[in-house]
């Protein structure tokens, strides 16, 4: 479990004056599901593109499966599987033909090609649709087929760039079931990017990236333990005044986020009654919760992961896909 299969040292990528990735050090162990978490534009896709040899870094080093991504890109490519953010299937071919094309390109020996393709089709439950043109598939089915295609050639590392983006929650859950099944079945390391906190919780380890830098790395539990205790959220119409009162009464520094105040306390259950008693400002709601990765992110960056923006991008992506299908 301790063998490192993806490693970067001081990875930097700049576009002109824009620094997309600013010195990233990562170590991913063989066999784990590693989540790369961060808002859009944080540098996730740039990093994953460098690891997949699609972009060359401006400075620093990256090793994947023991090979340097800039000096031995061919060796890296042969040992990784890829699921892109945007679809990359040939929708005029059938599911099986897409897989055959891939298996052939990646040199899966002829003797096992057919059996292997049957195996991955079964894993993503597309056996019955193997002979259908991909054009007729739903977004979720296409994504499943892409995951199947990503592992046909027995990669050591499977990279997934936002594998569940643009999918409905139910389909997202199924994709996760496949990923967990995949890990049980094969010796594979999964490296994925996501901006969904609940998905990051399912990873063995995660790295949080913001503005091109890694700001935290560890298991979800470790990161949450870093927040300390419980999280109390107070909703009020006068957050400034409430913050003042809390500062004076409890000597705590609340984080203000719109009309919400967020506090970290050691024992939430005993704190809430005292809080309600001491505040003079009208309070519309008080919520007590265990820390989530959302809180971790909020604490580290001082802001929530920007979901609205993401939703808009998703909507555009889906529109594009619809347009693509209509062609």
């Amino acid at each position: 479990m301790d063998e490192t299969v993806v490693e970067t040292r001081g990875l930097i990528k700049t576009y002109g004056r824009v620094e997309a990735v600013r010195g990233i050090d990562l170590a991913v162990h063989r066999g784990e599901v590693f989540g790369f978490l961060g808002p859009n534009g944080a540098g996730k896709s740039t990093t994953i593109s460098i690891l997949c040899t699609l972009l060359s870094p401006t400075a620093g080093q990256a090793l994947v499966a023991g090979y340097d991504v800039t000096r031995q890109p061919g060796a890296v490519r042969a040992r990784i599987g890829l699921v892109f953010q945007d679809p990359s299937l040939d929708d005029q071919l059938t599911a099986r033909e897409n897989l055959e094309f891939h298996a052939f390109l990646y040199n899966v020996p002829r003797a096992e090609r057919r059996r292997r393709i049957d195996g991955v089709l079964e894993m993503v439950e597309l056996t019955e649709r193997a002979g259908s043109l991909v054009r007729t598939f739903s977004g979720g089915m296409k994504r499943r087929l892409e995951i199947a295609r990503g592992i046909v050639h027995y990669p050591e590392v499977l990279f997934l760039d936002e594998p569940t983006i643009g999918l409905d929650p139910q389909t997202r859950n199924r994709i996760w079931e496949y990923l967990h099944a995949l890990r049980r079945r094969e010796e594979i390391t999964i490296f994925m990017t996501t901006h969904y906190m609940d998905e990051a919780e399912q990873c063995d380890r995660i790295a949080i990236i913001d503005h091109g830098q890694i700001i935290a790395q560890g298991t979800p539990e470790e990161l949450k333990a870093g927040v300390g205790g419980d999280v109390v959220t107070v909703t009020t119409r006068n957050p400034a005044l409430a913050a003042d009162e809390i500062r004076r009464a409890f000597e705590l520094e609340p984080a203000v986020d719109g009309s919400n105040l967020r506090l970290e306390v050691a024992d939430g259950a005993s704190f809430v009654p005292r809080l309600v008693r001491d505040l003079t400002v009208p309070v519309s709601a008080v919520t007590l919760s265990r820390p989530t990765l959302d809180h971790v992110f909020l604490k580290l960056t001082g802001k929530a992961i920007r979901d609205e923006e993401v939703d808009q991008k998703d909507a555009m992506r889906m529109m594009h896909q619809r347009w693509a299908r209509r062609r």
Binding site: C52, R77, L82, D90, A324, R327
Partner: peptide, 12 residues
């Protein structure tokens, strides 16, 4: 446009 070229360009 439809992404398939990427699949070919990343192949070893």
């Amino acid at each position: 446009d439809f992404g398939f070229l990427k699949e070919v360009l990343v192949a070893p």
